[in-house]
């Protein structure tokens, strides 16, 4: 089953006025696959994520989940179809406690629960991401990595078919980073389908089955992490041209 694509991105372009942020991107994500989207800053990775999750509409092209076209749907519909995401800068609901934050995913996500069932599932997800604080605590009391855990738990609580992690590991200190990589590795072992945007190269090597490399809005390489990271064009995109 590994090779049947779950998520398909075909010829997707996004223009903001005269600026082409994403230019004719195409890639597939197979079931149970973990795909990394990498590239230098400003290469259009987050814009690509925003188009998959429905925050932006593509100017051209098609994004589909199991053959169903997502690119015309509003974000809430895409979430219900089964795409869950975290945000580059963690976004929690500050007026709600930890448990309620996670319940938001359980109540309105891809698989919808209510009442006791939603609460129990949310607690299960908090446990799943290794959060040991009280569920009734306000989110303002959490450390940065714990806030990221709550956000991840909220996404998992919706039981998405595809998980989009937008720089989930960014901003963590070295110890937290190790914990974070372990956590995402565990998601991989569960057989989840994940697209992750990441800058941490160690994480990409450790986690991704495959990588799509973007530069200036275009796909410049695709393949296993080791292959793409030694690709001449990829190195040039990250480090610039040789002078000689």
């Amino acid at each position: 089953m590994k090779h049947r694509p779950v998520l398909q991105v075909q010829g997707v372009t996004k223009r903001f006025g005269g600026l082409v942020a994403v230019n004719d991107m195409s890639f597939d994500v197979a079931n149970h696959e973990m795909v990394g989207v990498i590239g230098p800053n400003g290469s259009g990775k987050t814009t690509m994520m925003n188009m998959i999750s429905g925050a932006f509409k593509p100017t051209a092209g098609r994004i589909s989940l199991k053959g169903r076209r997502l690119s015309d749907m509003p974000a809430q519909k895409i979430a219900r179809e089964g795409v869950g995401r975290t945000f580059q800068l963690v976004r929690l609901l500050p007026g709600l406690n930890v448990l309620e934050n996670v319940m938001a995913g359980a109540v309105f996500g891809h698989r919808r629960r209510w009442g006791r069932e939603a609460e129990d599932f949310a607690l299960e997800m908090l446990d799943r991401v290794g959060l040991e604080v009280v569920a009734a605590a306000p989110v303002s009391a959490l450390t940065y990595i714990d806030q990221k855990r709550v956000e991840l738990a909220r996404v998992l609580a919706g039981e998405p078919e595809v998980l989009l992690l937008d720089e989930w590991l960014a901003g963590l200190n070295p110890t937290e980073l190790e914990t974070g990589i372990e956590l995402i590795h565990a998601l991989r072992d569960e057989g989840r389908t994940v697209v992750l945007v990441e800058h941490v190269m160690d994480a990409i090597r450790a986690l991704c089955d495959r990588c799509v490399v973007m530069s200036a809005g275009r796909k410049i390489a695709e393949g296993s992490p080791d292959d793409v990271l030694s690709d001449r064009e990829v190195i040039r995109a990250y480090l610039g041209d040789d002078d000689d």
Partner: peptide, 14 residues
């Protein structure tokens, strides 16, 4: 309540 907290998150949780 979720809308009052963050409307973008509200849309993205469905």
């Amino acid at each position: 309540r979720i809308i009052g907290n963050d409307e973008t998150v509200a849309r993205h949780v469905g």
